[in-house]
């Protein structure tokens, strides 16, 4: 079995995997980071979105071996200790989650949106999140949460300057 080494949530990890092992499987089973969820088998649902080298990606679309040397962040690595990331905080404030299953992928995807577009319109948020399916919320409060997080993060960025 090939072995693979990468950085996950700031720590270097390695493991032996079958060639066919997906990054999502490696994260869940080898690393026991079960916040990354598997909701489908056709790369549609987006529950498994993580960040690879700073960009959001459905972790079921990569083989674990393809992530050799990559810098991976999962939902478990987003908060700063006990302090939630502004996106996590906004999802809670705006009731942007119900059953919580799509939530990790949704949050990771939304964080990347703000990385590339710090002030998205409702339309841009809805288009960006098209690859993340939520069955509970109807998306209304998710859109609200992303807007709130965007505002918070723009404020933080301005304060830092």
């Amino acid at each position: 079995m090939p072995s693979v080494t990468m950085t996950v949530n700031g720590k270097q990890v390695s493991g032996d995997v079958e060639g066919r092992t997906l990054l999502s499987t490696f994260i869940r089973e080898n690393l026991d980071l079960t916040g990354t969820h598997i909701g489908c088998d056709t790369s549609q649902c987006g529950a498994c979105v993580v960040h690879v080298d700073g960009r959001s990606i459905k972790s079921c679309t990569l083989l674990a071996v393809q992530a050799e040397g990559a810098d991976v962040v999962t939902i478990e690595g987003l908060a700063d200790g006990e302090e939630l990331h502004p996106m996590q905080e906004a999802f809670r404030d705006c009731h942007g989650l119900q059953c919580g299953f799509c939530t990790p992928g949704m949050v990771m995807s939304a964080v990347d949106l703000l990385n590339v577009n710090p002030d998205p319109s409702d339309h841009e948020i809805r288009e960006w999140l098209e690859g993340n399916i939520c069955r509970c919320t109807g998306y209304h409060n998710i859109v609200k949460a992303v807007k709130q997080a965007a505002q918070t993060m723009r404020g933080q960025a301005a304060a830092a300057e």
Partner: peptide
């Protein structure tokens, strides 16, 4: 919601 923090930090305990 009281339950949100665990869901938002990947600490939910689903069957899988």
């Amino acid at each position: 919601r009281k339950e949100d923090k665990r869901f938002l930090t990947g600490q939910g305990n689903y069957l899988h």
